[in-house]
Every structure is written in structure tokens, then in C-alpha cells.
Amino acid sequence: MKIFIKIIKVIFTILLFAYSIAIIYLIALAPKEKRFKIAEHSQGFYLSQTMFDILIFQNANYSDAYFEKSVAFNKRGEYAKGFELLDKAVKLDPKLHLGYRGWMKLRKLRDYENALRDFNKLDSLTPNFVDSPWGEDIDFLRGECYYGKKNYKKAIELFNRNIKNQKEDWADIHTFVYLGLCEYELGNYKKAISEFKRGLKQSENLCEAHFGIAKSYKELGQMDKAKEFLLKAEENIAYKRDDVYNEFLNEIYLSEILEFKQQLNK
């Protein structure tokens, strides 16, 4: 009996130590890439942030750990902490993180000036290469920045440069929507219509372009045409550009279309 208890005790001791060692290994000793993935997949939890802290402590130059640790803070509106970490990531590896920082400043904070500064700096670090911060053409993003700043002429220049980079059929369809919106804001309604139509060549469901054309026709006094395109915008509203995180600068809503319809019918 005593031996049996002794054996049980030995087994339990081994299991308890193995359990503790496994936890310590996964949190602090496993290869850094493996721990990075674990922390990345449990984003936002204290455990994830602690694991990034340990990674940073062990690898002071691990820029990805600073970058990934910043994500949870920025998603939750704690920008001071988030951008402090992103700044460190950028300092360690500007080419890798400048684009994302600029993208975050544009999309999360609508901080056009600071976003442009990051995009321009990135561009200067990579001559003869078209950067794609967070998967989007750098000139499309710079165009959005200038659109946000209401500098429509400069925005047109950048959106056109994006089309040149990507070619007409491959450029982001919203490049044409923005081009139309910029021309509309400058009072060039005919030009606006032709830009919106370039987008419609890529997809007939582009409700933002239909809506833009309707508004342009209204300005040109062609109410029938305006109503025709407004109807198309309404029919295609399900295809509108939206994002679970933030409202886009060129995002439209059904309520706006209906409001405009009422104005047209007055």
C-alpha cells in the first residue's frame, strides 16, 4: 500500500512539474516565432500582451513584437499607447512598419498630415518601388489623404498615379469614385461623370459611382438622368463600400440616397 501511494505521489509530482514546465516553455522559452503566433491569435488578452513583453525583453530589436502589441491598443482607442509602440517598431525597421503606421493614421485617426508624412518617408526609403501599405497602393492612400484634406487637385494627381501604377483594369475601383468625387467638388461635373463611369466599367454594382453621377447630373440640370442613376444607386446599395472597423471617407448610406430622392422629387 505504502509503495502504491509512493508511486502515485511520484507520478503526480512528475505531472505537475511537466504541466508547469509546459506553460513556462510556451510563454517564455519556445522559439520566438511560435510564441509570436500564439500571442497574435489571442490578441487583446493580457496573456498576449505579456507574451509580447517577454519577447521584447528577450529580443530588444524584435520590431514585429512592438507592432503586434500595438494593435490591441489602437483597436480599443488607446492610441497614445498604441502609437508609442508603433513608433518603436518604425524606429527599429522603418521600411517594414512605416506603411502600416501611415495606414493606421489615415484609417483610424483621419490624421491626414501625419499619415502623408509616413507614406512620403516610406516612399523615399524605397526608390523605384511602389509600396503597398497594408495591401493598398501607396498613391491610392496618399490620394485619400489629400481628399480628406480637401486638396482635390493634389488628390486627383495621386489617384491618377495609382492608376498608372496598377493599370486601369487592376486599380482599386474606388480610385475612380474618388476621382469623380474630387472633380465634383471642383465643380467639373461632366468630368466627374466620366470618372465615375470608368469605375462602372469595372463593376455595374458600384453604387457610390451611380450616386455620384446622379448628383452630378442634378448640378448639370439633367433631372431625368439624375433620377435614373439615383435608382441604380438605391438598387445597388447592398454592394456599398464598408468596413467593420471604421467608416470610409467615401462611404454612402441608403438614407442619403433617399434624402436626395426627396430633394429631386420636390
Partner: peptide, 18 residues
Amino acid sequence: LALVLTIWVYYQTTNRIG
């Protein structure tokens, strides 16, 4: 050791930023 680690991991996985 296992108890302390379990409590710590529980705290770390049930609390989130924000």
C-alpha cells in the same frame, strides 16, 4: 507551482485590454 501558474494564466486569459 502549478496552482500559481494556473491562477496567473486564468487571470491573463480572462482579462482584456480596454
